[in-house]
Design a protein around this nucleic acid. Structure first.
Length: 1090
RNA sequence: GCCGGUGUGGCGAAAUGGCAGACGCACAGGACUUAAAAUCCUGGGACCCUAAAAAGUCGUGUGAGUUCGAGUCUCACCACCGGCACCA
């Protein structure tokens, strides 16, 4: 009989299944004192008694080659908020912990660290309210998180713990920023290079001959560009040129400004026109900002996705975010009044529709608008009005300087006028042009000036929420100017509309309303010409496929779409928009015809033609923009940058030397931003102003900075000389022996990856687990930094995270997202008090597949808790447990109650006897299933396999200790505390099994007590799983009719005969013709009857 | 609108193209108990027929298809969840 003392009875759900409240702290303390889960770097001394050293027969100073293969299992480190952990955090952490323990048992050298992403807005806002330094709040929160995480018994190597707010850490974050600052992206080599190389390219006497042949087009272009402008002051010019190329650069950027938060936000931090943090109003504002040139890596960030093992959906999200599109840039000549032959580039993915481009649209911010407005407002001097003795003639290509008289004569002979377009240069710039025509255009444009200006004002006033509003009506105005369609020559109107984005492509488009829905919508609203130039592949009317020519004869279709080409645009509402690919129609000029060509071929042909004519070229465009890297905040990394003034009073920036790192934030009394929008750091005048007159940068880095490289710091967390030691980096990130590996943790991508000569292959983090919320931002930024560090030779792999898995969201019991306002938040602390950490861990994994979204159900915790109770009772003697419980009630607080666990004896049914074949089969089926499921990260089914084992084993009258010990090794990764406790009881069966009378004492930390954590993982023996008779289902016409028993080695004929002989089967086949019998060996028989 | 994912008992879920619902929750019945809790045993998709069972029919979001055989493969659709969203 079991009774439980009232004062220890847990609440709602009945008596405690087993004394987890004593077992869990006991083993957590043990692991902590023994440093059981410490991982060792190459060159480190392995302590003699350490279980890892003992397992692998290593001690003393050990080189990388002596260490076993590494396995780096990483969790996304948390932001330690004031609210503490919720049940979503430990989901991923439990999964990785199970795998870390599993891999250790398999003999891998496992790196499994944890740290804190501790910079961030909440601590700063708290500081603004209370005046308490963010560091204090942060430390308190970290302590809470650490306590909660440790109470779950995770096997982290705490010696590598880090916090992004620690000066010893962010010193290196700033150092990496300097690396970005001091490098540039060379398109010729497609990688980042030191800025010194660029400086050499730009210098008067380069150390190296930078020629096209030797180095590349881009570099030689830069060199030539420099030589061509000798008039500017060299130092200044060089600085300007070089600063233009740095991976970290300054730009005036339209940024999201949040008044309430007093800071700019990145695009990604603005959700539906509100700040992601707090949901406050945001607006666009031009500000000087630090940017990182991530866009240069767009191609590599997309291409290298193919080399890593992430889920398809995640890769797809990154691909969409980077947004690669292939197409062409096409140059359109602009007809507006003015001196310059203006042309405008557009980007299109459908150059094949160029013949259907009936108007142009530019974004409201487009440079052409300023030219148009200037053209309308400017009054030029013509012919006799020009006073300068000499002029320079542009347009028509010459650019020659001549006397005024010669110029006028030249104009006269050409039958045009001489127009002075820029009197402010010496000699004044003039063009030869028909002033009458010029005046005509000017009048046209002038009519539109007010409309253009009004429209621009209206757009600027709009919030971005309004601008991106769903299904909103298209707006826009005609500019009065025209462009020339380069393929067929007609003048097409240039419009301005906000459905064209300034920030993508060239900020201008050619509109093909017949084949683009947005253009179609706009064209129908403003009654613009619509001209179809693509016929869909679904043949209409009498189209026929001409196999000789290889294309459809689209004659009738052409007729159908033929439209009026005269001055008046024709509009017919019966025309439809079709953006699908098909065959070009209506698309020919004197030199080139696309008619009849399928879209892909048409694209190629027209692009080639454009390139040949110098009218365009093949182009790849990306959605990915450069990364806005500065924030107007206090609680972030200060930039290692100062500002100085040059001789002409212009501000320029300069990096601090590495010796100045870390740059610590100043002490402040007030953490608010300045009223003028300057960051809070600007309040610290003493800090900002340096003795030499230079001024510190007062922006700070965004929270992403610290999380961009923390996985590298774990490798060598205490290194004071380097962000990570080279040897540690190559061991943990770089390589491991190329063993044949069937584990599903190793993806097919990796298995098929070529290995290099040394039999080693590059890896990165072996497994990274975290939430989908970081699918694009953190994971893209970290990949970018890693690639820069790789290019500069600081890390050995091109990608940081080889395999990545997203854990699914855990919903509240009501199936809704957990939130304070819904009141459905589950606090892990409450669950631990009632059921213990092992049950909590087990439940988190038993709920369902890791990646799925699933609702929490506390009743489910009770289920796995009962399972652990059954495990416990499988091992222990119930009478002795009752004794223990009684003793425990009498214990005073000062006594070590853990020692009372000694009173609990092993179950008398556990004996050191050989296992029966049936018992071995049960065990080995369990080993097989758990092993395979862990490799496939199917934790839920692995747990159910262990339940099956226990349900069977608990019925055995005699329980062989050897079987139970192996089971504990399987259980250990999932429920490490109870497994260790039971292990300590069965570890030396000769003495302990009979300890019921002896009373041997357990001494925590005693040398002879080996932690279960490094016990070798059991191997299953397939021979033990072989059945001698099989149950074979028999179907008739695919329907199950009987199950027969046959010897396992029976051949097909025997099985078929047995199946036909079955009485039940006979009922269904009697009197019918057997058409076919399918016998699947060892599986099934299906008899097909007529 | 586009991209990705998911639809199986009352619930969480499981099933290399081969006995659908393992394992667990909840539920019901029983044993133990003065009683409860805890524990142990038994049951269970729906329908039909039964005193009960057996037998039978139907059943994995909907509709088609491939196959001796489909939860699983193919096509079309529907619903829900997540991401992106005027990206030319």
């Amino acid at each position: 009989m079991r009774c439980f003392p009232q004062n220890h009875a847990p609440m709602a759900s009945g008596r405690r299944q087993y004394p987890f409240h004593l077992i869990e702290p006991k083993w957590q303390q043990f692991w902590g004192e023994q440093q059981t889960f410490r991982a060792f770097n190459p060159g480190e001394v392995l302590p003699d008694g350490h279980p890892f050293a003992r397992r692998h027969n290593l001690s003393g100073r050990v080189a990388a080659t002596q260490l076993p293969p590494k396995f780096y299992i990483l969790d996304m480190f948390p932001y330690p908020s004031g609210a503490g952990l919720h049940v979503g955090h430990p989901e991923g952490y439990t999964a990785t912990d199970i795998l870390a323990r599993y891999k250790r048992a398999q003999g891998f050298h496992v790196l499994h660290p944890m740290g804190w992403d501790a910079f961030g807005l909440p601590a700063e806002q708290y500081a603004i309210k209370t005046g308490q330094h963010p560091r204090q709040t942060t430390e308190v929160n970290i302590a809470t998180f650490k306590r909660q995480i440790q109470s779950l018994g995770f096997s982290y190597d705490w010696s590598r713990e880090l916090a992004t707010t620690d000066p010893g850490y962010f010193k290196w974050t700033q150092w990496i920023f300097l690396k970005l600052y001091n490098s540039w992206f060379n398109p010729d080599t497609n990688k980042a290079e030191l800025i010194e190389i660029l400086e050499d390219v730009m210098s008067e006497n380069p150390k190296r001959e930078w020629t096209k042949g030797e180095y590349g087009e881009y570099v030689s272009g830069l060199r030539n560009g420099y030589v061509l402008t000798p008039t500017e002051k060299r130092a200044e010019f060089r600085r300007k040129e070089i600063d233009k190329h740095r991976l970290a650069y300054v730009a005036d950027a339209p940024v999201w400004w949040c008044e309430t938060l007093g800071t700019v936000l990145a695009n990604e931090e603005v959700i539906d026109g509100k700040s992601e943090v707090g949901g406050y109003e945001v607006s666009k504002k031009m500000m000087r900002q630090w940017m990182l040139r991530i866009s240069r890596y767009a191609e590599r960030l997309i291409a290298d996705l193919n080399t890593i093992d992430w889920s398809d959906s995640l890769k797809e999200m990154q691909r969409n975010w980077i947004g690669k599109s292939e197409g062409a840039t096409v140059t359109f000549q602009i007809e507006i009044p003015g001196p310059n032959r203006l042309s405008m580039d557009v980007f299109t993915t459908r150059p094949d529709t160029l013949f259907g481009a009936t108007y142009m649209v530019v974004a409201p911010e487009h440079w052409l608008i300023d030219n148009i407005l200037a053209a309308a407002n400017h009054n030029y001097r013509v012919n006799g009005q020009i006073t300068s003795p000499t002029v320079r003639i542009f347009g028509g290509g010459s650019g020659e300087t001549v006397t005024l008289a010669d110029a006028l004569a030249k104009a006269k002979t050409s039958g045009v006028d001489l127009i002075e377009v820029n009197p402010n240069v010496n000699p004044p710039a003039c063009v030869l042009q028909d002033y009458g025509k010029h005046r005509f255009y000017k009048q046209e444009v002038s009519k539109q000036v007010k409309a253009i200006e009004d429209y621009r004002k209206q757009v600027a006033r709009k919030s971005d929420l309004e601008r991106t509003e769903l299904a909103k009506e298209k707006t826009g105005v005609f500019t009065g100017a025209y462009a020339i369609n380069p393929v067929n020559g007609p003048k097409i109107p240039i419009w301005i509309a906000d459905y064209v984005l300034a920030s993508y492509g060239t900020g201008a488009i050619m509109a093909v309303p017949a084949h683009d829905e947005r253009d179609f919508e706009f064209a129908t609203k403003f009654k613009l010409q619509i001209k179809a130039v693509v016929a869909t592949t679904t043949p209409k009317k009498s189209q026929s496929f001409d196999s000789a020519k290889g294309y459809f004869d689209l004659q009738e279709k052409v007729e159908y779409f033929q439209i009026n080409e005269k001055e008046t645009p024709v509009f017919s509402s019966s025309l439809l928009c079709d953006s699908a690919e098909g065959f070009a129609v209506n698309s020919a000029n004197n030199e080139v015809s696309l008619n009849g060509l399928p879209t892909a071929a048409a694209k190629k042909k027209i692009t080639a033609w454009l390139e040949a004519k110098g009218l365009g070229k093949q182009t790849v465009n990306f959605k990915l923009r450069d990364w806005l890297f500065s924030r107007q905040r206090y609680w972030g990394e200060p930039f290692p940058i100062v500002w100085k003034k040059d001789a002409s009073g212009n501000l320029y920036h300069e990096a601090l030397p590495e010796s100045a790192l870390p740059v610590l934030p100043p002490k402040l009394d007030d953490y608010k931003p300045m009223p003028d929008g300057q960051p809070p750091l600007a309040r610290a005048k003493d800090w900002v102003n340096l003795p030499d007159g230079s001024v510190r940068e007062t922006n700070t880095m965004p929270q992403w900075a610290g999380s961009c490289w923390y996985y590298l710091r774990y490798l060598d967390a205490k290194n004071a000389r380097s962000f990570v030691g080279r040897e540690a980096e190559t061991y943990w990130m770089g390589s491991r022996p190329a063993v044949r590996d069937q584990s599903a943790l190793t993806s097919s991508t990796e298995k098929n990856a070529p290995t290099d000569v040394g039999g080693y292959r590059t890896q990165g983090v072996d497994l990274y687990v975290g939430g989908t919320e970081h699918a694009v931002l953190h994971l893209l930024y970290a990949r970018f930094w890693h690639k820069v560090l790789f290019d500069l030779g600081h890390v050995s792999t091109p990608e940081p995270f080889f395999k990545l898995v997203n854990q699914g969201l855990i919903l509240g019991e009501d199936g809704q997202k957990m939130s304070k306002s819904r009141g459905n938040v589950v606090n892990p602390d409450d669950i631990l008090v009632e059921f213990g950490a092992d049950a909590f861990r087990l439940y988190e994994m038993f709920m369902g597949p890791l990646e799925m979204v699933k609702p929490w159900n506390t009743k489910g915790v009770e289920g796995v808790y009962r399972f652990l109770g059954r495990v416990w009772r499988l091992f222990v003697d119930e009478a002795s447990e009752t004794e223990f419980e009684q003793a425990e009630t009498l214990t005073t607080k000062t006594q070590r109650r853990e020692e009372l666990l000694e009173l609990i004896k092993l179950n008398a049914a556990i004996k050191d006897v050989p296992a029966t074949p049936a018992q071995l089969k049960t065990l080995h089926a369990c080993i097989k299933k758990v092993t395979e499921d862990l490799d496939g990260m199917r934790f839920n089914t692995a747990i159910s396999a262990m339940m099956v084992f226990v349900n069977d084993a608990i019925t055995w009258e005699t329980k062989p200790v050897s079987v139970l010990r192996e089971f504990l090794v399987l259980l250990q990764p999932f429920a490490p505390h109870i497994a260790e406790e039971l292990w300590s009881k069965v570890q030396s069966p000769k003495s302990k099994v009979r300890a019921a009378d002896g009373g041997a004492t357990l001494d925590i930390g005693h040398e002879t007590l080996d932690s279960l954590s490094y016990q070798p993982w059991p191997k299953f023996d397939p021979a033990l799983l072989v059945e001698d008779t099989l149950e074979i289902p028999v179907q008739v016409n695919g329907k199950l009719r009987d199950v027969i028993r046959v010897p396992a080695n029976a051949d097909n004929a025997t099985v078929e005969a047995a199946a036909k002989a079955s009485e039940k089967v006979q009922q269904f086949i009697a009197g019918k013709t057997i058409k076919k019998v399918i016998v699947v060996p060892k599986k099934l028989v299906n008899i097909v009857v007529a």
